[in-house]
Amino acid sequence: MGKRGRKPMKIDSDTQLEKSRESARQCRRRKKLRYEYLEELVADREKAIAKLHEELQRLRSICQHIDQQGVTSDIHQELKQWMEDPEVINQAQ
C-alpha cells in the first residue's frame, strides 16, 4: 500500500529560500505588532496606576484633615464632589 496524502512538490532552492524569507518577514511583523500592543497596554496601566495613586493621596489628606479637625464644610463639599465624580462611579461598578 502506498503513502496517503499529498505528494511533496519539488521546489527549487530559490523558491524555497524566498518562501523562507517571506515567512521570516511576516514573523518579524507579527512580533513587532505584538510588542507595540503590549507597550500600549503597559502605558495605559501605568496611567491608571498614577490616577489611583493621586486618588489615594487625595483621600488620605481628607482622612488626615478629618482626624485633626473633624468634618468641616470644606471636607463635606470635597467628599460630595468625589462621590459625584464619574470616574469614581465607574470604578465602583
Rank of each mutant, 00 (worst) to 15 (best):
Lys80Thr: 14
Gln81Pro: 00
Glu87Trp: 02
Met9Glu: 12
Gln77Trp: 08
Gly70Cys: 02
Ala43Arg: 08
Cys27Glu: 15
His65Lys: 07
Ile89Glu: 06
Met83Ser: 15
His53Val: 14
Met83Tyr: 11
His65Leu: 11
Glu87Ala: 15
His65Gly: 12
Asp85Glu: 07
Ala24Asn: 08
Glu36His: 03
Leu17Phe: 11
Ala48Ser: 11
Ser20Val: 12
Asp74Trp: 02
Ser23Val: 04
Glu84Phe: 04
Gly2Leu: 06
Leu33His: 05
Gly2Trp: 02
Lys19Cys: 04
Thr72Cys: 01
Glu46Cys: 05
Ser73Thr: 14
Lys51Ile: 13
Arg60Tyr: 05
Leu79Trp: 00
Gln69Ile: 11
Gln16Asn: 04
Gln64Thr: 07
Lys47Glu: 12
Met1Leu: 08
Gln57Asp: 15
Ile49Asp: 04
Arg21Thr: 04
Tyr35Thr: 12
Glu39Cys: 06
Lys7Gln: 06
Glu18Met: 05
Leu17Arg: 08
Arg6Lys: 07
Lys10Gly: 03
Glu55Gly: 09
Gln69Val: 15
Ala48Gln: 11
Met1Trp: 03
Arg58Asp: 11
Ala50Ser: 12
Glu78Val: 06
Gly2Tyr: 05
Leu41Gln: 13
Leu59Cys: 06
Lys31Asp: 09
Leu33Arg: 04
His65Met: 06
Gln91Phe: 08
Gln68Glu: 15
Ser13Asn: 09
Ser61Pro: 00
Arg34Val: 02
Gln93Gly: 02
Arg29Gly: 03
Ser23Asn: 09
Glu46Arg: 07
Leu59Ala: 06
